[in-house]
Nucleic acid binder design. Sequence first.
RNA 1: GCGGGAGUAGCUCAGCUGGAUAGAGCAACGGCCUUCUAAGCCGUAGGUCCUGGGUUCGAAUCCCAGCUCCCGUGCCA
Length: 581
Amino acid sequence: MNSDFDCTRVLEKALLETSATLDGFGDDFAPQIRTADEKFGDFQANGVLPHAKKHRGNPREMATQLVDALPSSQHWETSIAGPGFINFRLSSDYLLGWIAPFEDREKLARAVASENPFKAVLDYSSPNTAKQMHVGHIRSTIIGESLARLLAFCGHEVTRDNHLGDWGTQFGILLYAIKRQGSSLDDLGDDPVAELEDLYRKGNAWTKEDEGALAEARGELVGLQGGDPESMALWERIREISMESFQAIYDLLGVRFDHAHGESFYRDRVDQVYDSLLRHGICEENEGALVVFHPEHKRFAKQPFLVRKKDGASNYATTDLATLWFRSEEWAADQVVYVTDGRQRDHFEQLFLTAGKWFAAEDKTLPELSHVWFGTILGEDNKAIKTRDGQPVKLADLLAEAVRRALVMVEEKNPGLEPAEAQRRARIIGIGAVKYADLSQDRTLDYVFSWDKLLAMQGNTAPYLQYAVARISSIFRKLEGDPSSLMEQARPPETEHERSLARKLIFFPLAIEQTLRELKPHFLCTYLYELATGFSSFYNHDKVMVDDSREQGLRLMLCARTKLFLETGLEILGIETLEEM
RNA sequence: GCGGGAGUAGCUCAGCUGGAUAGAGCAACGGCCUUCUAAGCCGUAGGUCCUGGGUUCGAAUCCCAGCUCCCGUGCCA
């Protein structure tokens, strides 16, 4: 990130350069620049207080000493308040100077670009084949996509991998059910994946009540794993059918992957994992299974990480290790981000510990590993939505309902709009609403599924942000004259709302940094919402179409920059915008 | 049992890792459309930040104890 882009860095640098010249300050001073309450200023430095405590000084005196020594600047005014806060109020000229250069996406992207770009692999969505996606799958897909876009926007090289659950014991039962029922996979009706799910349920019931059926299902699994051509062909077809149904949802969501190397992709690579772990003495045999213990860890010293079941089969620990190896070896990943449910935290902690030892033993550099976990979507009973009992809402149905509700509003507000255009707007608004509803909440929190929560279109929602963008577009449509030549004449912000909006704009880098640091999109959502409220307030108080060309120039510039930041931020969230709503 | 997450306005949630008088949205109430899109703006009301201690200039945030809910804890992922 460009160092002038983030004002906190500019102020921090100024304070540090000054404090270094002062006798009493020492070299351990941390300015702690934060955004300030608007009534105090734009930024504040809190660092003098703890610093004074540490050095047994008087904080107010030390703050005074520091501020007095600070070279006078045309860019900001300083003041000292309370026990020793240093407040900075940026000058109007500085605000204008900061905002003016961001004429387009390119200039913004260049300011954001990381000095140290790396290769990141994002592992997200990851549904199970032969099953429909339901609301429980929405979080990984949406959060993962958003983080992929964020990393890419910050200049990193991103590989998106859909780690499908396409291999495992369930296929024995499913193949058995298909053969017993004599089903044709090419004639499963309108909703083939629902049909597959149904077949699995039947198969499951049969194997539970009948020993013979269970044995046959196991036989099917062995056959599949042994590469039996007929079984393999069925399995392939199941994968295709599933991918088609997933793809319809991904298309609607605007999600795309570079790869979909599911678990099956690694089925021939797991033996190498056992061999290597055994050779290095990382795993051991225990109760017939191969397990990894971590004696140095208080919990995982006793709680094993199973890498091979006692029947000799691999499990997800094995494939995850093989997958990580592949991503490191073949894709040269510097970072791997896993976006999954929080209930898998133990698994990933053990995976990371094991991988650390394994890579070290193999003398390989371990990529930086991040488990980006999220809370569970709960049913009305406060329990996790389960596929088994009670049908969870299908993801396709949720999205369809979102579009339907948005269409009602679009038609109400634009009577006579062409149906195709109304449909297009409804899709962008409805899907945006669903995505934003999920992304705007801290991902680690559970929430209870609610149509009204996910499909809200008023207040802190995607449509509100999209609406701000649409209103700005409308201004530029109606403008007579050349916007760029008007903007060149812009005077500095003066009115309360001009200043307030400009101030919101300069916080953009902070929001990006915070979101990136924590890999939590809700920080960006909060920022964009505040930017949009700042704009709405400005819009209602200060008319853009005014006679004074310098005043109009500034207001147009504020509109243009707000639009760019909102569009860019929404694009990172995976939310489309509209010229007209 | 052990480990983890959560508890903030009637409801849903923020609160930038210890800062100034705790903020939004929804719901409620009252204003604002012959003026750039009212999916909006302005205002009013609403709080023992689960409870009790502690640490200090200063705590929703940190430490201890307790209460409630949720999750994980060897062959699912």
